[in-house]
Design a protein around this nucleic acid. Structure first.
Lengths: 161, 161
DNA sequence: AGATATGGGTTCCATAAGAGAACCTGTCAA
DNA sequence: TTGACAGGTTCTCTTATGGAACCCATATCT
């Protein structure tokens, strides 16, 4: 399968990855959440090749994850800012960062997140919106939904039903 | 910056991505969470080139995200199963899938997750473990932690302090 | 006026990674 | 002895990436 076919898969993970699943895209988004907005700043902080950066920013803009906002005219200069759609990727970033903190940071977390609401150094968990309980893989059963199309589950799952 | 240098970055997102940030790796992990375990099954369900699949499974095994478990001898055959480390990526998968459901599934979610604990179709949010409140980017302040090394925050963040 | 700086790109080339198909290796069963 | 099966490896061809150089509009310095 080629990369461009991913967004046609009947799987939300695949479709999400068709937008943000690239080597560099998630690094760019990390920078966005840290406040970086300008081309040169992304380049310097990430060490990414300029044309790759230009390409990824363009794709993120087309996917409405980033908006281009002018910060001066003559010469016109634009910076990239997270849209609401982009900001909704925050839980993905935080869960990824926490996994990295847990397994790949022997010297302690490189970055601490302070939860302003309660003032603590933040660790998070994923909770069910209905019952409020934390969610673990073993507590979850999957089944095909309305947008499934011709998609199927692996045999293991079908045998459960 | 080359991809292999990512794991030396003082950023947990970067380090996590050095393991799971590849085009195909997250798709393989999606399959793992759906119950897929065997080489051929991954190949058929993902349409991935065999040598790329072999390479990614090897790397996931080396990173202790997947374990190889023999399911027969003579000829020895092994399948790949999520370790505890791998299972800890579940929140990443779920938040990514939910983002895809929200913005890239006009016909409805392809896959529904049922929370066995309460019986509802599951939607989740990220909550602070200390205060239990949902977490949004605006409620969070970042600062450098013990593992930061020479890493810096973008200027925007430094100006806040 | 001419030279230089700034921000945000684009173009070029050499190398690396990917797709797709063919081939290899134990083992068992017909 | 010939297939079949599972899980790889090897091959070639195409695409993507890294790194450096170049471009363009405007502003400021000399």
């Amino acid at each position: 399968m080629r990369w461009e076919e991913l967004d046609r898969e009947a799987c939300s993970v695949a479709r999400a990855l068709s937008v943000v699943g690239d080597r560099w895209t998630l690094m760019i988004l990390r920078e966005c959440f840290l406040g970086t907005r300008r081309f040169e700043a992304f380049e310097q902080r990430l060490g990414i090749a300029r044309h790759v950066l230009a390409d990824r920013l363009k794709k993120l803009h087309e996917a409405n994850v980033l908006a281009k906002v002018a910060y001066q005219d003559r010469p016109r200069r634009e910076e990239y800012r997270l849209t609401d759609i982009g900001r909704d990727l925050y839980p993905v970033m935080v869960t990824l960062a926490q996994w990295g903190d847990k397994y790949m940071a022997p010297d302690g977390a490189p970055l601490l997140r302070i939860h302003n609401t309660c003032g603590h150094i933040m660790t998070t968990h994923l909770t069910c919106e209905d019952c409020g309980e934390p969610v673990a893989p073993v507590d979850v059963t999957v089944k095909l939904g309305p947008g499934a199309g011709a998609a199927t589950l692996p045999d293991v799952q079908r045998n459960k039903a």
